[in-house]
Design a protein around this nucleic acid. Structure first.
Length: 262
DNA sequence: TTCCAGGCGTATC
DNA sequence: GATACGCATGGA
């Protein structure tokens, strides 16, 4: 990793990384644009980050936090240039990678990702962000399942999550009592992991796939929403090329961003 | 007013 | 197993 320390900040040189494409592409919902960058959270740890010339500036960040938290969160050890070279053998993916060149897959928290994508169903991105923002405001940070499951559906009414409130509570209850163990699920064979997650009310194939990809870094997971469905019908009637499948989830990121901006 | 949004549960066949 | 429908909310 190519970085220097400078008056309390970490300054990082990093290829294949664009803040807007990575933080505002619908994979994470707690990042907000600032005048010159982004402000957001991972595990309730705040970060202000911006780009200045060739450097990404991690404001007020210790070397320890950078190496132990943020380098992992931003998946800095993965060579996205190499992935894009592999993907670009395919014509559509080649265009998608050129267009969305700076997307990286964020290694998010398991519980937060699961909860966030439960909220995402039949919803749009600005409203998902609003609900999660009100959730974090209410609990002083993203609530762990133990804290959340002490609440009732009426308690969650101010979030305006609609019919999803009872799904959030079911996920919190099952996770808090150990019926669902996200750490264990993250290591299971993917088809078994899917089934386990779908034991939660409000978690179907799409949300399970998102929990696996965004919360557990299972990069072979391939969430199919309305947009990706359009991509598949139009460009991949016979499925993705075999050489993409081990990283289908990362390919999906490029395709999602591409088709939404076509 | 109607349609749609990073879907899913339920009923019905 | 497939298909139809309702579901809370809010912006277009």
């Amino acid at each position: 990793m190519d970085y220097i320390k400078k008056s309390g900040d970490i300054c990082l040189k990093q290829e294949d990384f664009d803040l807007e494409q990575t933080l505002d592409c619908g994979q994470a919902f707690r990042w907000e644009k600032t005048s010159d960058g982004f402000f957001g959270f991972f595990l309730n740890k705040p970060l202000e980050i911006k780009k200045e010339k060739d450097y990404f500036i991690f404001k007020n960040t210790s070397e320890e936090d950078f190496l132990n938290t943020w380098a992992d969160y931003f998946d800095l050890s993965t060579d996205y240039g190499e992935l894009k070279r592999i993907f670009s053998e395919d014509e559509t993916l080649s265009k998608a990678c050129s267009f969305a060149w700076g997307i990286r897959l964020l290694k998010q928290d398991k519980w937060e990702a699961l909860c966030s994508f439960i909220i995402s169903q039949n919803n749009n991105i600005p409203r998902i962000k609003g609900i999660i923002s009100r959730l974090c405001e209410k609990y002083g940070g993203f609530p762990p399942p133990e804290e959340l499951c002490a609440s009732s559906e009426e308690d969650l009414a101010p979030l305006r999550a609609g019919f999803r409130a009872k799904y959030i509570l079911d996920a919190a209850r099952k996770t808090a009592c150990g019926e669902i163990n996200l750490d264990e699920i993250s290591k299971l064979d993917i088809s078994i992991a899917r089934k386990s997650l779908m034991g939660i009310c409000g978690v179907g194939p799409k949300v399970a796939e998102c929990a696996l990809l965004y919360g557990m870094y299972r990069v072979e997971a391939f969430p199919v929403d309305v947009w990706i469905k359009r991509v598949m019908e139009r460009y991949y009637p016979n499925g993705l090329p075999d050489y993409v499948l081990p990283y289908a989830g990362i390919a999906q990121q490029y395709l999602f961003h591409y088709i939404r901006n076509l």
